[in-house]
Design a protein around this nucleic acid. Structure first.
Lengths: 209, 209
DNA sequence: CCCCACCACTTGACGTTGTCAACCTTCGAC
DNA sequence: GTCGAAGGTTGACAACGTCAAGTGGTGGGG
């Protein structure tokens, strides 16, 4: 019945319905939020019948998983490109962090869906592949820092920390904002927070002078 | 019509329907996941009519918000209690981190809902209050570290980093697990990762000897 | 004793949703 | 000219969230 291919192979242009459905899905998520997401609304925006998304992606999880894979892929490409623009290891780490939150800002629907195991199929092979590629970028940058200044560093753990801090930041940044205005503390932009975090992670918060 | 009180005031015991509904909701989330959450299933488990949850909490967002507030409250109490058990600032930071992931492990439904602005009402006053209290614990511990070893530390930013890292860890830990077995790297438990992260955050990943 | 208002639900209904079977329609191969 | 598949559409179904209206019990005033 349903092919469940989710191919993005629309050779030239114009009639890539899976792609249009992904784009419409991202729009719906941005405008209405993931809580009010609906396949039928996606179909309506793409001007196809209500069952067309199901035909191409099997079910809702299939469509959202496809979106998540796209998100992980651009995350990989953007962070890799940002890292390649700098030679100093610390500059590279900061650039990767900035690229991370930039992807979160420019493709909020994609990034919102990446870490939602209840909505997507986390065992999809492409999820594994793209996730490992993206993590590889962080790993390489941290390795460069270790080579440059701290040969004894546990690179794997440090890379995990960097990823956790960036993802945590993207997730709780809005909440930090309201917390700030409730406590009267100064609000900082995402980019500034990335720079702050990078410096703190590198230097340590308890560095004895 | 609907009271939308969501009071947890069931004086003695036995007939605290809002509390039973919260408990049932947590069970549903744990067993079926947030994606398959349904008010009617909650009502079924509490053995009440399908509209009872709506009567007490207004709508689905009301029930989930109530759950999130409960989660933030136990997060606040558990981390504060853990911090009080140690005097050395570093031990306290590690203990707070462990308490954070412990709450995430023992009350997964509550913690899963805390950072889902699309499902809950993030502007609920109790959300602000409990969130600020919980953040206050982290802030105090980081302040102690600053007093002890690094008077120049930007305490607010450092506390934000700690919270982001912990929350990011809770969120992406399952993904790290599958990444590990895909890359052949060693898998670490959540508690071990907390200890690793704490040490790295304190010492810095680029600490020149 | 009666009545009335209120609380804590229940009942019933409506519109929307995800999913699935069945059905068209176009198109290239044989 | 017929076949078969690709790429959808149509129709149906059960489950869902939400809301208006109804119901039983309880407590207090007259």
């Amino acid at each position: 019945m349903t092919p469940v291919t989710s191919d993005s192979s629309a050779s030239s242009e114009g009639t890539d319905l899976p792609g249009q459905l992904r784009a419409a899905a991202a729009d719906v998520i941005i405008e209405r939020g993931l809580g009010a997401f609906s396949l039928r609304e996606v179909a309506r925006r793409a001007d196809v019948s209500h069952a067309a998304p199901g035909y191409h992606f099997g079910d809702m999880s299939g469509l959202l998983t496809s979106l998540a894979i796209e998100g992980l892929d651009t995350l990989h490409r953007e962070t890799a490109a940002a890292a390649a623009e700098h030679v100093d290891p610390l500059d590279r780490l900061t650039a990767v962090g900035r690229a991370y939150v930039k992807v979160g800002r420019e493709h909020p629907a994609h990034m919102e869906v990446v870490f939602r195991p209840d909505l997507i199929d986390v065992d999809h092979p492409d999820m594994h592949r793209c996730g490992a590629q993206a993590f590889g970028v962080v790993l390489a940058v941290v390795q460069a820092i270790a080579d440059d200044r701290n040969p004894d560093l546990d690179v794997l753990t440090a890379a995990r920390l960097c990823w956790s801090a960036m993802q945590g930041l993207v997730q709780i940044h809005p909440k930090l904002g309201v917390l700030d205005e409730a406590m009267g503390t100064s609000t900082r932009s995402l980019d500034d927070l990335v720079a702050d975090f990078t410096r703190l992670i590198v230097d340590g918060i308890g560095s004895r002078p």
